[in-house]
Amino acid sequence: MRLLATTLLLVGKDVRVELRAKELVYATVFFATVVILVFAFAFWGGERPPVDVIAGVLWVTVTLAGTVGISRAFEREREGDTLRAMMLSPAPRVAIYLSKLVAITILMTIVEIVAAALVSLLFQLDLTAGLPRLAALLLLGTLGFGAVAALFGASLGRARSRDVLLPLLTYPLVVPILIAGTRGTVALWRGDEAAVSDFWLRFLLVFDLIFLLLGFWMFEPVTRGES
């Protein structure tokens, strides 16, 4: 219970900081918009690209925007030296990890709503049919991605060349998430049987559980001495 209360407190802190600065949301949403526009210019040649490509555009955009946002979030922590303050506080490390994960998920959910809407608009795709499933895929994908990014983002605190290292460390590890997310989305948009996207949903769920367990297990030792 105390863990939950501490986590909520820490998430509340992140949300409050962001509501005042509004820096992360604006930067990440606009970054995602620009990336989708770049893809639209690159892939749009008269005919609509196949749904495989569009699903790829959505997931790649979310991944790229996610790293930019998370990088920036931890950079802000570093500038104010607040990550160190949090690590020094009696808050359990697991609560810090959990709060970062929740904050990342909130940020990325906002980005995903905008990104999905833009993809639908620019690639003339009707999203209404499989919307709940798409939302579930994106949410589970974000959780898995966040589980990895929160772990390494926090431990990159004082590292040099953080901006390059975060994607370098995260992307190879989240490939299973990307594959499952993209395949599930393609199945959805292609109008395959519901069983196909359900399969990938379950797949994501299992991956998330494993990633979260690894994250919980490793956050404490990896960030030890990071104060």
Partner: peptide, 12 residues
């Protein structure tokens, strides 16, 4: 290139 704390990070 990780700087201080990089050994823990790399081990993770």
């Amino acid at each position: 290139y990780g700087g201080p704390g990089a050994r823990k990070l790399a081990a993770g």
